[in-house]
Amino acid sequence: MLHIKDLQVSVEDQQILRGINLDVKPGEVHAIMGPNGSGKSTLANVLAGREEYEVTSGTVQFNQQDLLDMDVDERAHAGIFLAFQYPVEIPGVSTMNFLKSAINAQRTARGEAELNPMEMLKLLREKTKLLGMDESFLKRSLNEGFSGGEKKRNEMLQMALLEPKLAILDETDSGLDIDALKIVSDAVNQLRSPDRSFIIVTHYQRLLNYIVPDYVHVLYQGRIVKSGNKDLALQLEDQGYDWIKAEAEAALAQ
């Protein structure tokens, strides 16, 4: 599904990613961990198409398409979804209007008919309920004045509505209390299916108690320096990153 080869990325002439290699197959859940500043969020944003990041080398294939050649909205139409670390507040655009526009834009791009107002309302109601959200929240301006938990829940609502093929969660769990964390992980678990994949960027092992990953990768200084299964996350939780850093630097020194 997703093949990242030797991906190198700079921001304002500073190299952040120094050669990422990653394969994600349909149905897999990959967790990406690593200390602050290791490039985790950069990887997530580059996959979604953020312009400030300059790809200096490498390729990304997504379902046989050259992902790096696609516009941001085309990537969404192809099935990529990024849950933002900091969802953007947009005063004056109601959450309802935004969700309708997004759903219909994707349907149009796929050659499907737009949903009529009744179908749309039914869908929105069903999914807001699923996320344990009050319907009144649809009338509010997008993310404006939302609490941290509400913003993240709104991201999960969008994911549930858009049903992407590959969902990338950029620190969606940061700053959430346990109830909100359960809602986020329930949303992911309900969407897990043999043809849908997830990349979960996180700082904390705690999330992985609720969303059990198939693979755990550790990003350090712009490279994946270690990969394993969920036990690797537990080991990091116990021992921190120092041993990983030591290993990585030893390998570089050779």
Binding site: V72, V88, Q158
Partner: peptide, 25 residues
């Protein structure tokens, strides 16, 4: 605000429509 444009586009809304939405808002 280009961050807002990016956010809307990342949900599949084409650039011209994203810009219209933001201006109307």
């Amino acid at each position: 605000d280009e961050t807002s444009v990016f956010y809307l586009m990342s949900r599949g809304i084409p650039a011209p429509q994203a810009r219209l939405l933001l201006q109307q808002a």
